[in-house]
Simulated assay, not measured.
Amino acid sequence: MTSRRGFLAGLMASTLTPQASWAAAGSPAFLSAGKDASGAFLLAGLSRTGEILFRHPLPGRGHAAAAHPSRPEAVAFARRPGRFADVIDCRTGGALARLEPPAGRHFYGHGVFSPDGSRLFTTENDYENARGMIGVWNAADGYCRIASFSSGGLGPHDMLLRRDAPGLAVANGGIETHPDSGRAKLNLPDMRSNLSYLSLEGEIQEQMELPQDLRLNSIRHLAVHADGTVGFAMQWQGDTGELVPTAGLHLPGSEPRLMAGDDARVLNMQGYGGSIAFSADGSRIGVTSPRGGVLQVLDTVSGALLHEHRMGDVCGLAPSSGGFMASTGTGQFIAVSDTAQHLLHRANLAWDNHLIPLA
């Protein structure tokens, strides 16, 4: 299930030498999957201005990645319904291990390390039993698989660590899929997504569902602020052209707050929230739509839509000291302030959906 020989050899060697840190990998600021001009897929480590510091070839299209909290290692996850997750030495871009889910499951493109880096959690589809699962891997012992537990719903996509308490926040998109049906959505007549809060051992601590009239809004991507507030981006599965929110906020123990739902400019998102990120100070939250070619910035207190930035095929988003960093399917890496955008770098490749910050 896991190619471990090379990883274990490196692990044995590491017991004889000081533990490498992210500085040894050139201190990358971001990770992103992409596709180069030849059509080959990769995961790259990027500087703060978008230059590529390392790259690792992937066997298929990647989606997101997770960075180990102390070691210069990253895990690149296959896009749904892929079955690979590559563990990468970010000093060289070389492979340490390749993870595969058990038979009857596939990855959903996201994962996260435990705070101490000892475990990796992965979102998975148990498609034979139509249930969402979280896989658990021992990152201290060659990434062997040690457990799994329910995600609390169907279609778990993004997952992050909570900031207000130990545990996981999981975006259960609510959509049933099966590899035999490609990316078809099999349960739209009765789909219901949720945001589930789980302990690191899999106990459901709290769940948040949207109002019934928004049950077709699939909660897909997450951002977490220091105070524990979770930002969530949604993807509407109903009729196109309906004015429905694509972003919301939830503080555990309270009701969700949906943002800018009555602002006609939300229609520019075309019902698709691709990535979401808080600003560094938490006063704003950004959400991207590659379908609409737009980044919208919202006020986290009032929920109002403050600014809109047009960018072709924009999806990746991360906080920066001056606002946000965005990446596009045309290879652009863009710094975004409240009222301006500045192209920092253009790569000869297409960046995929997510820009993963390492700080």
Rank of each mutant, 00 (worst) to 15 (best):
M1P: 14
R4K: 14
L16T: 14
A20C: 10
S21L: 13
S27K: 12
P28R: 09
K35D: 10
L43F: 03
I52Q: 06
G82H: 00
V87F: 09
I88G: 02
C90A: 12
R91S: 07
A95H: 14
L96N: 04
L99A: 06
A103D: 13
R105T: 15
G117K: 03
S118K: 10
E124N: 09
Y127R: 01
G135T: 05
N138L: 09
A140D: 12
G152F: 04
D158I: 07
L160M: 10
R162Q: 06
R162N: 01
R163T: 07
A171P: 06
N172T: 09
S181L: 02
L200P: 04
M208W: 02
Q212G: 02
V224A: 13
V230Y: 01
G231C: 08
G231V: 07
A233Y: 03
P245H: 11
L249Y: 05
L251M: 15
P252S: 14
G253S: 13
L258C: 10
L267H: 11
Q270V: 06
Q270R: 13
Y272I: 05
T288R: 09
G292T: 09
V294A: 10
V297W: 00
V297D: 04
E308L: 11
E308R: 11
S320P: 07
F324Q: 02
M325D: 06
S327T: 15
T339Q: 12
A340T: 15
L344A: 04
I356T: 15
I356W: 03
